[in-house]
Design a binder for these strands. Structure first.
Length: 366
DNA sequence: CCCTCGATCAC
DNA sequence: CCTCATATCGAGGG
């Protein structure tokens, strides 16, 4: 049977939650911000409501730049409260999960879903399911969302972005060609600014152009896998299944230094709380890790990493601290002056799911 | 096959 | 003036 796939996106999620909690905010520009703590207003805008977007506010914009644009407009700046949004997200995802065949959460505020079985392959039936989901989110929780429905994940994702906020866009099998024609390549999931620039240099700016490009050309630019992906995607083809997300495979924390530094003592001092926070998360989720990395972002904003894999998986805090310290020193020997520093653990094993000690000791011994 | 590292994407 | 976190790919060395 032909698949019927959806993508749901909660509208201006963080800012909408703040409006819900405090209705007096509505009608004003509302900006949820990540404050880096380096100076009073250093940091960026995470999410802005549509009143703010009307004045040209975008995600990722420096807070100071946003303030300049919004002077005298009654704008409200709110620091991000990730735990609060996480809680709301969990409730909403459960609501959606109960109304679809398979749900694949792909971010705090978005998810793919498969309704092939439930709709019997009918787009009309799928449209009713989408309306029900939107209605439930609105009437039970007071939030608007946008949904796209199409024959695969790529088209569903483009569709959900097509009309926002509070949109519902259907791309039926016979409408795929028309929908894709003329779209800029950046609209395709997986095509960001770097990829778009490389394509542009080859004279490819639209999905149609990409669809007609020789696959060898793409392979030379991006490698085999990405080339095949881009070729298929631009032709409206995508077989990626919707799958419920498994366990997380890495945990990281990153922070901005009070001032740029290349001094190991100073940098480690400011990294330590991130290490503690990451460790808490790892223990809370009953995980052990086998690899760890130090992440540095230098004053030119380019990223450097150092990592190592341990003999045995562990969740030992002292070992984590010692190893992080060593990796940090290695990273700093390059002489780079850092602006931000972070830590990451990966190769995670979920200890709560290990049925026996032997399974943990011999994870490859199937 | 394993490990490390950088690049890219997108949240 | 430039946050934070996760996942994936590919190259290169062993």
């Amino acid at each position: 049977m032909n698949r019927v796939i959806g993508h749901i996106d909660l509208d201006y999620f963080y800012a909408q939650i703040e409006e819900l909690e405090k209705p007096s905010l509505k009608g004003n520009p509302v900006l949820v911000c990540v404050y880096s703590g380096r100076t009073e207003d250093s940091g960026v805008v995470s999410t802005a409501n549509y009143e703010a977007r009307r004045f040209g506010i975008k995600s990722g914009m420096p807070i100071v730049a946003a303030k300049r644009k919004l002077e005298g407009k009654g704008a409200i700046f709110i620091p991000m409260d990730h735990e609060k949004y996480e809680g709301v997200s969990e409730m909403l995802m459960q609501l959606v999960r109960a109304r679809v065949d398979i749900l694949e959460q792909s971010g705090i505020d978005e998810a793919f879903f498969d309704v092939t079985a439930m709709s019997g392959g009918s787009y009309d039936a799928a449209e009713l399911i989408a309306l029900d989901i939107k209605g439930a989110i609105l009437h039970l929780h007071g939030l608007t969302s946008s949904i796209g429905i199409g024959p695969n994940k790529i088209l569903a994702k483009i569709a959900s972005d097509y009309k926002k906020p509070d949109g519902l866009t259907m791309i039926r099998a016979d409408g795929v060609k028309e929908f894709l024609s003329g779209l800029p390549v950046e609209k395709l999931y997986g095509v960001g600014s770097k990829t778009a620039k490389l394509l542009q240099e080859k004279g490819i700016g639209t999905v149609d152009g990409l669809a007609g490009a020789p696959i060898e050309l793409l392979e030379g630019l991006f490698g085999r896998k990405t080339a095949v992906y881009l070729h298929n995607a631009s032709n409206g083809l995508d077989d990626e299944p919707v799958v419920e997300r498994g366990e997380t495979t890495q945990v990281s924390r990153i922070t901005t230094l009070k001032r740029d530094s290349r001094d190991a003592v100073e940098v480690y001092g400011q990294l330590a709380p991130s290490i503690e926070s990451l460790w808490k998360r790892v223990v809370e989720k009953k995980l052990v890790f086998r690899s760890l990395s130090i992440i540095g972002i230098d004053t030119a904003l380019s990223m450097k990493t150092k990592s190592k894999t341990l003999e045995m998986a562990t969740s030992d805090l002292e070992l984590l601290k010692r190893s992080a310290r060593t990796l940090l020193e290695e990273l700093l020997t390059s002489g780079a002056e850092l602006r931000r520093v972070g830590v990451r653990v990966s190769d995670l094993i979920d200890m709560s799911k290990q049925s026996s000690l032997m399974e943990y000791l011999q994870p490859k011994g199937e």
